Every structure is written in C-alpha cells, then in structure tokens.
Computed example of a mutant assay.
Amino acid sequence: MTTFFIADIHLCAQEPAITAGFLRFLREDAPQAEALYILGDLFEAWIGDDDPQPLHAEISRALNQLHQQGVPCFFIHGNRDFLLGRRFARDSLMTLLPEEKVLELYGRRVLILHGDTLCTDDVGYQKFRKKVHNPLIQKIFLMLPLKWRLAIAAKMRAGSKASNGHKDMSIMDVNPQAVVQQMQAHGVEWMIHGHTHRPAIHPVELGKTLGHRAVLGAWHEEGSMVKVTPEGVELVTFPF
C-alpha cells in the first residue's frame, strides 16, 4: 500500500527534459501507487482550459491513462495554475480538491495543501493572492481573448520574478506559527505541501505532541515525491 505526493513540476514547452521526466514518472513509477496527489504548480502557468498548447493535451492523455490503469489522481491548485479548471480535469480523469484537504492514510491524519497560504510573512504576495482568487476577477480574465491573457500572464510572471529578487528568502518560506495553527485546527499529525522548493521533513511541536511537516521539492533537475506507506513517510528524489 503506497500513496504518492508531488508538486511544483512547473511543466512548460521550454523545459522538454522536465516534461519527459514527468511522463516517464507517470508511465513507470506512478502505476505502483494506490493514488497520486499533485499539490499544485503542475504547470508553470495556466491561463485557461481553452489554451490549445500541445503540451496540455499530452499531459492530459498521460493522466487519463494512469487513471485507466487503476490509479486515481487528485489535484490541489498552486499559485501558478490556480485557473486550471473542470474541463482539463474531466479530460484527464483527475479529481479537483479544495485548497486544504485532510486525508486518513494508513492510520495517520494528513493535511495536504500547496503551501503558499502558509507564507504569511510575505504580506505583498498574500494581498496579490487574495485579489487573483476573487471569482469575479477570474471570470473576467477567462473571458478575455487568449492573446490578451498570454500577455497579461507574461507580465505578471516578470513582475513576480523581479519582486522576489528583492525579498529576503525567509519571508518567502512558511511561517512556523501558521503551520502549527493549521495542523492544530485540522487535528492532524502530518502536513505535506510544496511551493517553497525546500524539500525536507521537519518536526513540528504541537503542544504536548510532536507532528511532522513534509515539504516537496521542485522538479528543476530531478524528480521529488513524498511516499506514504503503512510503515512510514519518506521524501524521495529520483533522476528524470
């Protein structure tokens, strides 16, 4: 019995090696699991399910095939692909989850999320996040011509990159108290998330008990996943 968790693959046409590595993972590794959870930022950017990029169709087919092999796939939106919608999910046979989800896994209560909501010290980002998650703003954006959406997304990515270049790295990491608050609020002993690109398993003091937080790595030069079995929780890296 095994469940896999991944995040921050950041697929894009400009990084064919990452795409090839992810497709290999879906063909060879993922079928060994009972379920696959993708905790956001599967794609580097997402401007709507109507974007006709061949890459999107290729990934959709691969996820569909994984489901047909008996491995369900679940998805939590990230900060890069929060507009990924029901159409892509339907074609991929992928189940969309809320931004926070508690799982009962082999006797453990596990909270899964992308992780950006834990970075509460980055006040500017949290204000931006609140704005772009407004349903009305999203609806208006998705009604724009594809060409306009591409230009807006490119401008926003450039702005984000420039802004992050001036921020202290600690601001862009999770706030420890936010982690404790979320774990206690959900009554869990484990948390799994991505977003920060700082793979590790951290102990978390939860009053009289000790919890753990597993952080997934980004797929820049190698794959990263958290493997949960009845025996334990393991952070695994592997070549593309």
Score class of each variant (00 low, 15 high):
M1Y: 10
T3N: 06
I6L: 00
D8G: 02
D8P: 02
I9G: 00
H10K: 00
L11F: 00
C12I: 13
Q14V: 10
Q14K: 11
A17E: 15
I18V: 15
G21N: 06
R24T: 14
E28C: 08
P31V: 06
I38H: 05
I38Q: 01
L39G: 04
G40Y: 07
F43E: 09
E44A: 08
W46G: 01
D51G: 02
D51T: 09
P54C: 09
L55M: 01
A57P: 03
A57L: 07
S60L: 09
A62P: 00
N64T: 12
H67M: 11
H67E: 13
Q68D: 14
G70K: 08
V71R: 00
P72W: 04
F74D: 07
F75D: 08
D81E: 02
D81G: 02
F82P: 02
L84N: 06
F88I: 10
R90P: 00
D91I: 10
L93K: 14
L96D: 08
E99T: 12
E100P: 01
V102H: 05
G107M: 05
R109N: 08
V110S: 05
L111H: 04
L111E: 03
D116E: 11
T120R: 07
D121A: 11
V123E: 15
Y125S: 08
Q126H: 01
K127N: 13
K130I: 12
P135C: 08
Q138D: 12
Q138N: 07
L142Y: 02
M143A: 14
L144R: 14
P145V: 12
K147W: 11
A153L: 03
A154T: 14
A158K: 15
G165F: 00
D168L: 07
M169S: 13
M172G: 06
M172E: 15
V179T: 11
V180G: 04
Q181L: 12
Q181Y: 08
Q181D: 15
Q182R: 15
G187R: 10
W190K: 11
M191C: 09
M191H: 06
I192K: 01
I192C: 03
G194C: 06
H195C: 03
R198P: 02
P199R: 07
P199T: 15
E205F: 01
L206M: 05
K208D: 14
L210G: 10
L210T: 15
G211V: 12
R213Q: 03
R213E: 00
A214D: 09
A214I: 02
H220G: 10
H220A: 13
E221A: 14
E222K: 11
M225W: 05
V228Y: 03
P230V: 12
E231G: 10
G232M: 01
G232A: 04
L235P: 04
